[in-house]
């Protein structure tokens, strides 16, 4: 399953390069960035951006609601899969982890602690709320400035099509240095507003990791969890992004279903 996830992640990385190249060839089948992507007639937008525009302008365009519906439905049915299965930034962090392993550097991941995911959730939610208040006061939808996939895709368009970048690009090298040398998935766990907004739409009826209740307690799942959760008891936490690492890592799964995806 993890191979399958990697394939999907790379498929979602491809638009970063395909969209501007198609653009250079004057093909407009696929257009936009990860703030708002348009494939054929299907429009998909980052809910945070659209909600900001909606609340600030008091102006509803039908296309805004339609483009938020797709990510909302995906979250309602499958949970926060955007983050782990599609987000190019998450793929980059996966790559960093593998690279550190290859360079034989020590993993930055700290040992599991019980309340760490609650702290992370509070921090993420707090940043989203403070950000929205800030945006409301200045009256300009600026939260995209702290959304790495948006910046990555918009800057790649500018780089490939126009050969320049704009000022928000500065965030990427800073984040790369922080994530590679100083912390373990800091952005995804403590900051990302898009991920928080998506996880707000997730319910206990969405797809999530389920534990059968009996296992050999090897704690392999806790060791591999990128969000530092205990998948057996905390899979309903909004920090879980359904990456399925715990399910692939579980040795008991070979004998009988111990950890598995469940959707009501």
């Amino acid at each position: 399953m993890q191979k399958f996830r990697k394939v999907i992640q790379f498929i979602f990385l491809a638009p970063l390069f395909i969209v501007p190249i198609l653009n250079l060839l004057e093909i407009y089948f696929m257009k936009g960035t990860y703030i708002s992507l348009d494939v054929g007639g299907l429009s998909i937008s980052d809910p945070v951006s659209v909600l900001q525009a909606l609340f600030l302008s008091h102006h509803v365009a039908p296309i805004m609601l339609v483009s938020v519906a797709v990510p909302a439905l995906i979250v309602i049915f499958f949970g926060r899969v955007w983050c782990s299965w599609a987000c190019p930034y998450y793929l980059m962090l996966d790559g960093f982890e593998a690279l550190r392993k290859k360079l034989k550097l020590k993993s930055l991941k700290k040992p599991y602690k019980k309340d760490i995911h609650i702290k992370a959730n509070i921090s993420r939610l707090g940043i989203l709320i403070l950000g929205l208040i800030f945006v409301g006061i200045i009256g300009v939808p600026l939260l995209y400035l702290i959304s790495p996939p948006s910046i990555m895709s918009s800057q790649s368009v500018l780089l490939i099509k126009y050969a320049y970048v704009t000022a928000e690009f500065i965030l990427l090298p800073i984040l790369i240095i922080i994530e590679f040398f100083f912390g373990y998935r800091i952005w995804c766990r403590y900051v990302c507003p898009t991920g928080t907004c998506l996880s707000l739409m997730q319910t206990k009826f969405s797809m999530h990791v389920e534990y059968s209740g009996k296992c050999s307690n090897c704690n392999q799942c806790i060791r591999v969890c990128p969000m530092m959760l205990d998948p057996k008891t905390e899979s309903l936490s909004s920090a879980c992004n359904n990456c399925g690492e715990c399910i692939s890592a579980c040795p008991d799964n070979k004998k009988e279903k111990t950890l598995y995806f469940k959707s009501h």
Partner: peptide, 30 residues
């Protein structure tokens, strides 16, 4: 208030006339 800086119009411009602003003054970035 409405512009979410998605750069679609910048992409759609076949003459490369539309450009993405880099100015941080008055939040017009993007």
């Amino acid at each position: 208030k409405l512009c979410i800086r998605c750069a679609r119009c910048v992409e759609a411009c076949p003459y490369r006339v539309l450009r993405r602003s880099s100015a941080t003054k008055n939040a017009e970035i993007g």
